[in-house]
Design a protein around this nucleic acid. Sequence first.
DNA 1: CCCCTGCTTGCAAAATATTTGCATTTGCAA
DNA 2: TTGCAAATGCAAATATTTTGCAAGCAGGGG
Lengths: 143, 143
Amino acid sequence: MNPPAEALRKLGYPATRGRGEVLRILAESSLPLSPKEIRDRFPAPKPDASTVYRNLSLLVSLGMVRSVALHERSRRYEIATEGTHRHRVVCRGCGRIDSFQPRLCDLSRIEADIRVTLGYDVREHSLEFFGACPDCARTETRR
Amino acid sequence: MNPPAEALRKLGYPATRGRGEVLRILAESSLPLSPKEIRDRFPAPKPDASTVYRNLSLLVSLGMVRSVALHERSRRYEIATEGTHRHRVVCRGCGRIDSFQPRLCDLSRIEADIRVTLGYDVREHSLEFFGACPDCARTETRR
DNA sequence: CCCCTGCTTGCAAAATATTTGCATTTGCAA
DNA sequence: TTGCAAATGCAAATATTTTGCAAGCAGGGG
């Protein structure tokens, strides 16, 4: 059977339809999705919003899904495939979101610095860029 | 008179009490604050929440305040003093937030990369770190 | 210094986002 | 197939943010 279901059972959590669909939907999306968007992509019958929230929260705590904060009203979620580390570029004009795998994402020096000066054990970071996408940059009045 | 009031008037916006207090409160805080926390720090009479939201939204659009996304339920805001660029470290255990001025924040290569490959005009970025603060790291069971 | 005009505020209410309790259903291991 | 624990749907509670409208304040002109 499918890997995610196995992984869930191994961790002691039943592999339910809700869980499976959330993982599939996120895996198929190139963009992080909001809980609402995730629910919208469920094949009928759509689950209740609370089910989506409960599953997202479980999957995040199991490390199978990550939440992404893009300064919007609601949070977004993405699949946390092993070894994937993605960053986002958000267009302030039209809201378009692109994600990319950084070629060089060397924040280890900053992390080491934090460890030394503040004493934190840093385990994750999130890095997002904001600006104007090609279309919006063209449309804009020159500054 | 005080600089922020001047700046507001110059931009054509009356320097009201709400605006002044929001700026003062954010300037005096070493941490980004939520709208609720900002309202709580107003001297009596406290303004309505909607006033706080409206002022934050104006000040953000004028570039005098920045919003900070820390994967929480509500957004946080910080003063956007010229030349200040801060990053955050958030403790997953107790929620403690520290901010620091990065010694080396050279993301210009990544930004150049984005410009070339995706065509975006990148204007801002936000970078946050997550982990365990000294206290929580000590308390935690060894992994 | 006072008056006008427009922008801002308070208040109430709506819209949106997220969480929770409880009865019922489902997953899955024996 | 059966039973138990955990998940789901549903309804309602919370939390967050936005909006409409009438009344009040800021600040320029007289």
